[in-house]
């Protein structure tokens, strides 16, 4: 009973997160300007981290937590680097 409840809710949550990632990927490809693409990339990092957390709940192993933490750190670093590039690298030079 509890396993069925959890299985269904984890599956629905993963489907929702995948749809959210699809919306962000559409905007990442379509997005009119570079800042939209950077924004969507940052949002996709967060959604991938949430997908890995739900995968950890699904399998019941604690290994996925460390992968999620690493993705959070790398997503922050790469988004800040891309924002700084947009600020300095392209328009003025």
């Amino acid at each position: 009973m509890t396993a069925a409840i959890l299985l269904w809710s984890v599956s629905i949550a993963q489907a929702m997160l995948v749809i959210a990632m699809g919306c962000n990927a559409y905007r990442l490809i379509r997005g009119p300007r570079a800042q939209d693409r950077v924004l969507c990339l940052d949002a996709m990092y967060v959604i991938a981290m949430l997908l890995i957390l739900t995968m950890g709940i699904r399998t019941g192993s604690a290994i996925y937590f460390e992968a999620a933490l690493i993705i959070a750190v790398l997503g922050f670093a790469s988004s800040v680097a891309l924002a700084k590039f947009l600020m300095r690298g392209e328009v003025i030079e």
Partner: peptide, 21 residues
Amino acid sequence: LTSLLLLVGAGLTLLGAVGVL
């Protein structure tokens, strides 16, 4: 409780992605 929190979190994330779109 786990199911409720999972659905709330995933639903909010989906709402944000629809907003981006």
